[in-house]
């Protein structure tokens, strides 16, 4: 096995261009599980650990190398909330935003936030320059993303104006260190425009468009409107039954969680 340890973004892109099949290693918290369990063959690694450019966080542009720990302590409320639920302190100190996108698990904890605020993903390559993809273009399926060989996730770009009211929640059976059964992020801006994104209830994170449309039209939502919002969310998610939970529970919990998050937005 060979390992490249680029020190700059240019060096990183050069290495990725030369070895398009290389494993990109950031925090290692997903890659190494596959290595340890012998489900991933690794012949060449490009370590992103020393690439300072990737760890920059300027306002709404968050470098792919920003760790959950930094997100937890950062200024964006829902991002901080979700970061606190990721794995353990040990995971959060090294796991990165870019890694969560690279792995593209349907239960990826950052995804509901990114989807709810319509974030874009910036990817770069030596030969193809920079591509900016919407979250929905980037996340293409369970553990699948739009990254091409030779490309590196460099940053997440958030909209210039994030709604002040933004709430994240995650349902799991344990109080810490748990993969989400359902996760959700709700945002509501001053005009009442509401977005809701849900994780672990579809092949990728998804937005509940009808629920959003309905709630965005409500300036002072009544209890009935909240119930309808909840019902629409439950209707729009596409969960499955697996060893962690059942389709019916996930559908139910999606609606409950989304409604509670919206209530928190309204109370804020």
């Amino acid at each position: 096995m060979d390992i490249d340890r680029p020190r700059s973004l240019d060096e990183t892109l050069a290495a990725a261009g030369e070895y398009p099949d290389a494993t990109l290693l950031a925090g290692g918290t997903d890659v190494m599980v596959e290595v340890n369990f012998r489900t991933r063959q690794v012949r060449r690694v490009i370590s992103l650990r020393g690439v300072a450019d990737l760890s920059e966080w300027n306002g709404t542009r968050i470098g792919a190398g920003v760790t959950y720990r930094r997100m937890e302590l950062g200024p964006i409320p829902a991002l901080a909330q979700l970061a606190r639920t990721v794995g353990s302190p040990q995971i959060r100190s090294v796991g990165t935003l870019g890694g969560n996108l690279g792995t593209a698990s349907p239960a990826g904890d950052t995804h509901p936030f990114l989807a709810a605020c319509d974030a874009s993903i910036e990817v770069r390559s030596r030969d193809g320059g920079t591509r900016i993809l919407s979250w929905s273009e980037f996340l293409t399926g369970p553990k699948l993303n739009a990254l091409k060989p030779g490309e590196v996730i460099t940053a997440v770009v958030l909209p210039e104006h994030l709604p002040a009211r933004q709430e994240f929640g995650k349902v799991g059976v344990r109080s810490a260190m748990v993969i989400s059964t359902v996760s959700a992020c709700v945002m509501r801006d001053e005009e009442g425009r509401t977005t809701v994104a849900l994780g672990a209830v579809g092949p990728t994170v998804l937005r509940a468009a009808r629920a959003e449309e309905m709630m965005s039209a409500e300036s002072h939502p009544s209890a009935e409107a909240l119930a309808e919002f909840s019902r629409l969310v439950s209707d729009e998610v596409r969960p499955i039954t697996d060893h962690r939970s059942t389709e019916a529970y996930r559908r139910h919990a999606s609606g409950v969680l989304a409604r509670r998050l919206l209530e928190r937005c309204l109370a804020a």
Binding site: R84, T85, E167, K170, V171, S175, R260, E263
Partner: peptide, 8 residues
């Protein structure tokens, strides 16, 4: 729900 912030 703990840090998942599920439950008021």
């Amino acid at each position: 729900g703990g840090t998942g912030l599920t439950t008021p």
